[in-house]
């Protein structure tokens, strides 16, 4: 078995031998798709779902009418990295089920989704043994791949988590899991605050129609920002934060519980964040994370978007406007 990844272990100072890149993915300088939220966050076979895009531009929300959505029905090759078969990144294909265009679309989870993308073996060809089912992700989940074209040659993949019954379990474990598992909930942003040097937090109100932004940061000033999400109990109950859920350990095939990890992605139309993504691992229950932001040198309104992603595919976001006087 070839191990190419191990080749790149280099005995040198990382700063001296590994190049650095000017990463400006946090800056929204052109219309971009930042996130997609699926409701429900986890759907069963035959259930309907709605997908809504966070499509923004340098001046705020962008026109999403050019977004083109489709379910990708082509299984991904086993050795192919990523969440979707790259052959689906075309406008029209027999492997695509169109969902329409715009900022929000509706779809239905195909009845054979768990065979195509889940733990159920696909129907075998005549005279052939069964095909290999898909492996679950690190949260035990399976996903229906949806591809999005932005109309300007850019593509995105937005999977919908599908509720498939796990396979390869004893009946006892299967029954306990099925009765105790609850589907994923999308996370939500509870608050965004500016944290002062004294630890005091100044709330920043999210964007609201007809309400002008009251939060201001001086040009070039650095502020510490804190995003919070709901604190969830350590029990398997639905929650809009880092939920605890049932999980099948792939090594023991027994039930265990895990907590979701939570990652906050930061975007703005100007300025610079200290990091583009920050979050809490699954063993850290703190329902908040901090990041720093340096205001741009010129005055104006800066649009900020905060996207929360939990480890089971749930997404939530809020938008803000910061005034640089």
């Amino acid at each position: 078995m070839v191990t190419r990844a191990a080749v790149a272990v280099v005995m040198c100072g990382a700063a001296a031998c590994t190049p650095t890149f000017s990463d400006e993915t946090t800056i929204v300088s052109a219309p971009r798709l930042l996130a997609v939220q699926a409701v429900p966050a986890e759907a069963a076979l035959g259930d309907g779902f709605t997908m809504t895009a966070l499509y923004v531009g340098p001046t705020g929300p962008a026109d999403p009418s050019g977004l083109n959505w489709a379910i990708c029905l082509l299984p991904k090759p086993l050795g192919q990295p990523g969440p979707i078969n790259p052959d689906c990144f075309v406008d029209v294909s027999a492997g695509l089920t169109p969902l329409g265009a715009g900022g929000s679309v509706e779809g239905t989870v195909p009845e054979d989704a768990c065979q195509l993308f889940g733990p159920d073996s696909p129907p075998p060809q005549p005279g052939q043994p069964s095909a290999r089912p898909t492996d679950p992700d690190s949260t035990g989940g399976f996903y229906l791949p949806v591809r999005i074209g932005t109309g300007d040659g850019q593509w995105a993949a937005a999977p919908e988590r599908i509720a498939c019954a796990p396979s390869g379990l004893t009946q006892q474990v299967f029954t306990a899991f099925s009765s105790g598992y609850h589907v994923n909930e999308n996370p939500s942003v509870t608050s965004l605050s500016a944290v002062g040097a004294d630890g005091g937090a100044t709330p920043i109100a999210p964007d609201s129609p007809g309400v002008a932004s009251a939060f201001a940061v001086s040009a070039g000033e650095h502020v510490s920002l804190r995003v919070e999400w709901p604190s969830c109990p350590p029990t398997t109950t639905p929650c809009a934060g880092a939920e605890t859920y049932l999980y099948i350990d792939p090594t023991t095939k027994q039930i265990s519980t895990q907590r979701e990890s939570m990652v906050a992605s930061w975007y703005a139309t100007a300025g610079a964040f200290d990091v583009d993504r920050a979050g809490r691992a699954d063993n850290d229950p703190t329902p908040s994370v901090d990041n720093g932001w340096t205001a741009p040198p010129s005055s104006g309104l800066v649009h900020v978007w905060l996207v929360l992603r939990d480890s089971r595919g749930g997404v939530g976001w809020e938008s803000y406007t910061i005034k640089v006087p």
Partner: peptide, 19 residues
């Protein structure tokens, strides 16, 4: 680890499909 013939980029995260 990746095998001969795989599309692979150094430092790329492995696919989140666990067996």
């Amino acid at each position: 680890p990746p095998r001969t013939g795989d599309d692979y980029v150094f430092g790329q995260a492995p696919t989140d499909e666990i067996a």
